[in-house]
């Protein structure tokens, strides 16, 4: 049984802000760019501490991506900050040509991803960003699960040479991973071992997966819970090893089931160990306004949904 404890609800974007701020001290090449969302991205501390390395670009995300690409020439490590929607779909071609194809060392930091952005509704709730970003050759895609992990991931990506998409969120959610962890890109985190069903989760759904595992335990089902925070490159060995053990897989993510984590897991298993799989994800739909937990309930992205899918597999 897992022993993870929620040390207090806090938003993952604050983990990004704290990580970025510490990074500014450690690495003088780190620069930050923001498109009029400094407060929302929690970049104020970095801005205050390092005003000469903070660039306010205004509401002009395409320009921000191009400037970030240019700033790498001469050794800077730009971190761009805006909402996930404006970090990806709005600027896909700029990322594709000026950053990914050009092999630029830009860190695309995206907050307010998924449904849990809440009341602003579907115009801002991107559920396609992981798919878009993982399709880009050479792009690393990371969706950490809580404050501590987001903070650690923010620092880890500065040491990784190449473009990275770092996805995090707006709502206050449980903080349960280790405070002083080191984030390893491409390394799965086995949170709980079990033999009956593998639950692979990312982002806000990792805590839900742990909650689901508790509920399943009460029903006599031993779930293995694995945090696949790095969607690309995927820790394929961890996925295959777990699937070989359980032969039943549930993936859980705050993203469309087209293009998300679930598809990456399915592709891996189809090649190496075909396994029955259920998907906890949005079903090719846009979101809507509402409170984060209401939206997760309505769209079936919570512990209950994971339990139902696991039971269906074991049925």
């Amino acid at each position: 049984m897992n022993t993870f404890t929620n040390t207090g609800n806090i938003d993952t974007r604050s983990g990004f802000g704290a990580g970025l701020s510490e990074l500014g001290d450690k690495n003088k090449n780190v620069v930050a760019l923001c498109a009029d969302l400094t407060g929302s991205l929690k970049m104020n501390d970095f801005k205050k501490k390092f005003p000469e390395r903070f660039y306010q670009v205004g509401i002009a995300e395409a320009n921000m991506m191009g400037i970030a690409a240019g700033m790498t020439i001469g050794g800077k490590i730009p971190f761009t900050g805006t909402f996930a929607n404006f970090s990806t779909g709005r600027v896909y071609d700029q990322i594709r040509q000026s950053i990914a194809y050009s092999g630029k060392n830009v860190k695309l930091c995206a907050s307010h991803a998924g449904l849990t952005l809440g009341e602003d509704g579907a115009t801002h709730q991107i559920l396609e960003d992981i798919g878009m970003m993982k399709m880009l050759p050479g792009m690393t895609v990371i969706n950490p699960c809580d404050y501590n992990q987001t903070k650690a991931a923010t620092q880890a990506i500065a040491d990784h040479e190449g473009p990275v998409y770092l996805r995090f969120g707006r709502p206050k959610v449980p903080n349960f991973t280790a405070e002083d962890q080191k984030f390893e890109i491409g390394k799965a985190q086995i949170l709980q071992e079990g033999n009956d069903v593998s639950i692979f989760a990312i982002g806000h759904l990792v805590w839900e997966a742990l909650e689901a595992a508790k509920a399943l335990q009460e029903k006599g089902i031993q779930a293995e819970v694995i945090n696949l925070a790095t969607i690309k490159p995927l820790d394929e060995k961890a996925v295959i090893d777990s699937a070989k053990k359980t032969n039943a897989v549930v993936t859980a993510e705050e993203h469309n089931y087209y293009g998300g984590l679930g598809e990456s897991v399915a592709r891996t298993l189809a090649q190496h160990h075909p396994t029955r799989q259920e998907f906890v994800a949005t079903q090719d739909t846009f979101g809507e306004s509402g409170k984060p937990h209401e939206l997760l309930d309505k769209y079936g992205l919570n512990a209950d949904a994971i339990v139902v899918k696991a039971e269906k597999l074991l049925g």
Binding site: A62, G70, S98
Partner: peptide, 14 residues
């Protein structure tokens, strides 16, 4: 349409 932004970025780094 992307080169102006890139040039600005490189100029800032200089």
């Amino acid at each position: 349409g992307q080169g102006m932004s890139v040039s600005i970025g490189a100029a800032q780094t200089k």
